[in-house]
C-alpha cells in the first residue's frame, strides 16, 4: 500500500511516498532554514508564504522520485498538528484537494506520532515501547503499549528542551538554530558550573527546563556584573550535561517501570550527539533487554516520510479525515 504524505507544520515543506509504512520510496524536503536564519528564528508569515510557493513542486517531485503517479497512490496523509497554524493550513489544504480530486482516503497525522514512527523506516518498532520525543516545541515521554496507541507519561511543564537550547544560545550569541552550535561547543568544554537537574529526583516523569535556563542566564549575568569572563564552551558543556542528564535519567527510569522492548529517541533534538551517545551507553548498561532505536539524522528533523510511516498505522486502525479537516495548532497525542 502506497501513501502520499505531506508535512508543513513549521519551516519545512515536505512530501514523501511510503510503502506499507516502512519503505521510503521518496522523501522530498524544501527547507526554509536559510530564510528564517535572517531573523534569528521562524517568522510565521514568511514560513506560510514559502509553503505556498513550494507545495505542489515538492509533491510532484516526491511522486517522480518514487517513480509513480497519483493513480498508484492508495491514500493521502497530512500533518494536522501541532505546529504553526498558518503553516499547517497549507499542507492540510493541499492534502484535502488531492484526496478529493483523486478520490483517495485522507489520513490525519499527529506530528509527534510522525517523529516516533520515523524510527520504523530504517528499523522495526516493537511494542510495547517508550519514546523520548525532543524538539524545539516538544519534550515528551510516550509509552506505546501497541502500535498506534499513545500515552504521554511525562512532558515538559514549561519550555521544551530545544527551546531552552535556542534561548541560551541567544544569550551567549550563537546563530539560530542554537542547538547545533551549543552541542559543538560542549565538546570543547567541561561541565564546571553544575547547573540544576530539575525534577530529577521527583517521582514522576515530567520535565522542567525553565529553571535550568534561568540558572544559566543568572550565571552569565552575574559574571558580567563582576566583569568576569566565563568560558563559553564550559557554559555550553554545563548546560548540555544538565539537560541530557535529566532526559536520560527519566527515560531510563520509565523504561524500567514500563515493560518495554525498545526505547526510541525521536525529534529534532535527537540529532544532538551527547544525547545520542549518552542514551546509548545508559541503555546498554542499565537495560540489558531493551533495544535503543535512533532514526538516522536525515529523519530526525521534520519530514513527510515520518508522517507517511505513522499514517500507515492510522490507516490500518481506520482513522480518516473528512473534507472539513482543519489545522490543529495545539493538538496533543
Amino acid at each position: 500500500m502506497k501513501i502520499l504524505a505531506i508535512e508543513s507544520s513549521c519551516d519545512e515543506t515536505s512530501a514523501a511516498v511510503i510503502e506499507d509504512g516502512c519503505r521510503q520510496l521518496s522523501n522530498v524536503v524544501a527547507s526554509q532554514i536559510k530564510s528564517h536564519k535572517r531573523f534569528g528564528g521562524v517568522v510565521p508569515e514568511i514560513a506560510s508564504r514559502h509553503h505556498v510557493e513550494f507545495i505542489t513542486l515538492v509533491i510532484e517531485e516526491a511522486l517522480q522520485r518514487a517513480q509513480c503517479t497519483l493513480k498508484e497512490i492508495d491514500a493521502v496523509a497530512v500533518t494536522e498538528g501541532p505546529g504553526l497554524v498558518g503553516a499547517l493550513l497549507i499542507g492540510v489544504s493541499a492534502a484535502k484537494a488531492i484526496a478529493y480530486a483523486a478520490g483517495l482516503p485522507l489520513i490525519p497525522v499527529n506530528h509527534i506520532a510522525g517523529h516516533i514512527y520515523a524510527a520504523n523506516l530504517n528499523d522495526t518498532l516493537e511494542f510495547p515501547l517508550l519514546a523520548l520525543v525532543v524538539s524545539g516545541g516538544h519534550t515528551e515521554l510516550v509509552y506505546m503499549k501497541e502500535s498506534g496507541s499513545y500515552e504521554i507519561i511525562g512532558e515538559t511543564r514549561d519550555d521544551a528542551v530545544g527551546e531552552a537550547y535556542d534561548k541560551i544560545g541567544r544569550v551567549i550569541g550563537v546563530p539560530y538554530p542554537g542547538g547545533k552550535h551549543i552541542d559543538e561547543m560542549a565538546h570543547h568544554g567541561k561541565d564546571r558550573y553544575n547547573f540544576p537537574r530539575a525534577m530529577i529526583k521527583e517521582d514522576h516523569y515530567d520535565f522542567s527546563f525553565s529553571g535550568l535556563k534561568s540558572a544559566f542566564i543568572n550565571k552569565v549575568h552575574n559574571a558580567q556584573q563582576r566583569d568576569e569572563v566565563l568560558d563559553s564552551n564550559d557554559l555550553a558543556a554545563s548546560f548540555q550535561a544538565a539537560a541530557v542528564d535529566v532526559l536520560i535519567d527519566k527515560t531510563i527510569r520509565a523504561a524500567k517501570e514500563y515493560p518495554v522492548k525498545q526505547v526510541v529517541l525521536a525529534g529534532g533534538v535527537a540529532a544532538n550527539s551527547a544525547l545520542r551517545n549518552e542514551l546509548a551507553k545508559a541503555v546498554e548498561h542499565e537495560l540489558p533487554n531493551v533495544r535503543l532505536i535512533v532514526p538516522p539524522l536525515s529523519l530526525t528533523g521534520d519530514n513527510a516520510a515520518m508522517i507517511g510511516a505513522a499514517a500507515y498505522i492510522a490507516y490500518t486502525r481506520g482513522e480518516r479525515a473528512e473534507l472539513d479537516l482543519n489545522a490543529k495548532p495545539g493538538l496533543s497525542l
Partner: peptide, 11 residues
C-alpha cells in the same frame, strides 16, 4: 498544563 508558547507563539 500551560506550557511556554515560544515555539508556536500562541497557545
Amino acid at each position: 498544563a500551560v506550557k511556554s508558547p515560544s515555539y508556536t507563539l500562541v497557545r
